[in-house]
Write a protein that binds this DNA or RNA. Structure first.
Lengths: 197, 197
DNA sequence: CCTACCGATCGGTAGG
DNA sequence: CCTACCGATCGGTAGG
């Protein structure tokens, strides 16, 4: 009877440490200690430290995409999709804080070939958002001036949430999501007798 | 006749490398080489590698604050102040790309006592924004629902700009600033017959 | 998965 | 500011 592998424990320790101290500042000894083994023992599970980063980033990318894809493909109006998408994004951030933070901030520590693979995962996620925005523009629901700049604007607000959100903070996640969705829709809906000063 | 000191060249090299590779991934040998001397020679100018990070971050904090403070203290309407502040922030980002990126992203690499000093510089800058928002709320110009969440929302969009903005990109800085200011004002102005779905 | 260890590289220093 | 170098620590491995 083999006991459960410690791989998940190692990944969790690595995600936690990478998110708090950064990839470069985290040593394999840190990870091993937090996972309950000694540094050499790590290499029964992985080939290199960078593998851990790749696995964490890949898992987070999947989570974000799995949360968003069904919304994009769904039947609702673009406005409703934006609301759902904001909530889905923030739920992933809240549920997997360390992982999502590594995905959003630490992927740059990857070396060339793997960084490009991650870049394309990030692009796919951004394109899902782009599809919602495009649909809203095509239907005339959104009147925002520059659709691709607006996508960057929206995603940068959302991606920053994991830098400050704490489950024990003043506002519960659903309230943050509601406000953010409302504000983002205000941006996307575009001018309605709005004054330019 | 002493020739000009190389300290500025060292700071510039460090800012460039810290912004591109991160503080931890940059070695004193990298910095020395890019500044045109050998690694030991750095220590004629600095005591530790961390000192460079402190100097860069402090200089950037001063730039951001110097750009915003006169706007906050000025006579214009809150709406106009927001437009000016967005433009001022983005001008600092564009003018000092490496420095501002280090200020916004790499300060977390500082060790405890110095990190707290930087945190308070960051807080001061956020409070300047808070003052503009508060003034707009007091005067009834802004009807946004949660002022302090809105401040976070606004600043996180602006702070993300240095992650993607390139001077040679599609949109000139003034165009980005105009769109961002318009969108931020849309958020801050609040609901005007807006529907909640 | 541990013990024991390696070569490389790190930030920093002594002496000039 | 260079030459020459140091102790510490890094990611990773051999052998069991």
């Amino acid at each position: 009877m083999p006991r459960p592998s410690n791989k998940p424990r190692i990944l969790e320790a690595a995600a936690d440490l990478f998110s708090r101290k950064g990839f470069r500042a985290t040593t394999v000894r840190d990870i091993a200690e937090q996972a309950g083994l000694v540094s050499g023992g790590l290499y029964a599970h992985i080939a290199t430290k960078e593998d851990l980063l790749v696995e964490i980033v890949g898992a987070a990318a999947e989570e974000f995409e799995a949360a968003l894809a069904p919304i994009v493909a769904g039947p609702d109006s673009p406005e409703t999709k934006v609301r759902q998408a904001v909530r889905a994004h923030l739920e992933v951030v809240a549920r997997s804080r360390a992982r999502s933070r590594v995905f959003l901030d630490e992927w740059q520590a990857l070396s060339r070939p793997r960084r490009e693979a991650v870049q394309s995962l990030r692009n796919r996620y951004e394109q899902l958002w782009g599809a919602i925005l495009q649909e809203g523009a095509d239907r005339g629901s959104f009147g925002v001036e520059d659709l691709s700049l607006a996508r960057i604007f929206v995603l940068s607000c959302l991606n920053a949430v994991n830098r400050w959100y704490r489950p024990e903070g003043r506002l519960p996640l659903e309230v943050v999501a509601d406000h953010y969705a409302t504000w983002i829709l205000r941006v996307l809906k575009g001018p309605e007798g709005e004054s330019r000063d």
